[in-house]
Simulated scan of single mutants.
Amino acid sequence: MNAEPAAQQRLLQLADVDAELNRIDHRRRAMPELAEITEAEKILRERKDAVVSAETSARDLDREIARLERDVEGVRARAERDQNLLAGAGLPAKQAADLQHELETLARRQGVLEDEQLEIMEQREAVQTNLDAAQGELAEAERALADAQTRRDGTLADLEAAEAGRRRDREPIVDGLPADLVKLYESIRSRGGPGAAMLRARKCGACRLELDRSEVSQIRAAAPDEVLRHEECGAIMVRTSESGL
Rank of each mutant, 00 (worst) to 15 (best):
H101N: 13
H101A: 15
E102I: 01
L103R: 15
E104C: 07
E104T: 15
L106F: 06
L106T: 06
R109T: 14
R109M: 09
Q110Y: 02
Q110H: 12
G111Y: 09
V112C: 00
Q117F: 04
L118P: 01
E119K: 08
E119S: 14
I120P: 00
M121Q: 15
M121L: 14
E122F: 06
E122S: 09
E122I: 03
Q123E: 13
R124T: 06
E125R: 06
E125Q: 07
E125L: 07
V127I: 13
V127L: 07
Q128C: 04
Q128N: 11
Q128I: 07
T129F: 00
N130A: 13
N130M: 08
D132C: 02
D132N: 13
D132G: 05
A133R: 09
A133G: 06
A139P: 00
A139F: 03
E140C: 01
A141G: 01
E142I: 04
R143S: 14
R143V: 14
R143C: 10
R143D: 13
A144L: 03
L145D: 03
L145C: 02
A146Y: 02
A148G: 07
D153A: 15
T155Y: 11
L156I: 14
L156W: 02
A157T: 08
D158M: 13
L159V: 09
E160S: 08
E160I: 00
E160D: 11
A161K: 13
E163Y: 11
E163N: 13
G165N: 15
R166P: 01
R167T: 10
R168F: 10
D169R: 09
E171L: 12
P172W: 01
P172K: 05
I173P: 06
D175V: 10
L177E: 03
L177N: 01
A179C: 09
L181M: 02
V182L: 09
L184D: 12
Y185E: 00
E186P: 08
E186C: 05
E186D: 15
S190P: 08
S190Q: 05
R191F: 09
G192H: 12
G192D: 11
G193W: 00
G193K: 10
G193T: 08
G193P: 05
G193E: 05
P194E: 11
G195D: 00
G195I: 03
A196W: 00
M198E: 15
L199G: 02
